[in-house]
Amino acid sequence: MSGYIIRRLLYALPILIGVNLITFVLFFVVNSPDDMARMQLGDKRITEEAVSAWKADHGYDRPLLYNAEAEGTAKLTDTIFFQKSVKLFAFDFGSSDSGRDIGYDISQRMWPSLAIALPVLLVGLAINISYALMIVFFRATYIDVGSVVLLVAMMSISGLFYIIGGQFLVGKLLHLVPISGYDTGLDAAKFLVLPVIVGVVGGIGTGTRLYRTFFLEEANRDYVRTARAKGLRERTVLSRHVLRNALIPILTGVVAVLPLLFMGALITESFFGVPGLGSYTIDAINRQDFAIVRAMVFLGSVLYILGLILTDISYTMVDPRVRLS
């Protein structure tokens, strides 16, 4: 087991290098360090000296990928790519182009993101599973047909509509909670209610429909027929047999996204003004702050790969037939 995990982590290294290279190339193909300096200094008419000074300050005064003037290994190490990207592997994100410590910002902004993403996941899971189970209990009736139509309709509504509609209905018409904003400590709760509700409602369509197919697949298996033949009540069959077995794909699906919860929801956070990692990323994109974008891409990739590994491990834990090789 531990050997497998170590091997998987080693496999992750070339992928992360690839990710870094792609982001690096994408960003620097047209956006030269000079452009960045001008953008950050924020003035059309600036002297060459100011640009050079900014580049020297932020470490952008080296060649991009290959330093022909340096000696030995420094040919590769004394470059922007190496200096800026390799430190990421030690989770040393450095400082952003506007001078703030990215690592500190991330550790601060992680919690609001998590405070929204975790309740959305848990409440959503509970609602989706119980709703899907109910549909399966009433399968092949009008409740089933009606629910499926409702779910498809809910899926077809743009996520933006849920956010705007939720803000309008709950925040503006009913005046129950503030429309957007954030606070520290327990006071944050009243700001979190709306994003969480919107997140859960927006996910019901896709989630419940997926879980319904999981349940239906299990409900047609032989062991379920056996359970019914034994004379068990439908309720017992569903909760004791179908639910438990269908939880395997559901849980492994959840495990895969678990690490990514830290990344936050981009759109929700910026709509509700939550200072999480999602809005952090969007702000960085708009300000063209490459250091932050690079850090977030790297973090996202690490968490994604972590999710893949966790999925594999959770498979072996819930299903003893699966062996890691």
Partner: peptide
């Protein structure tokens, strides 16, 4: 590799470019 880059960020970088 492509899959592990968050989609929105990849799109954002490309569109900025």
């Amino acid at each position: 590799t492509l899959n592990s880059i968050p989609g929105v960020l990849l799109i954002a970088a490309a569109i900025l470019m």
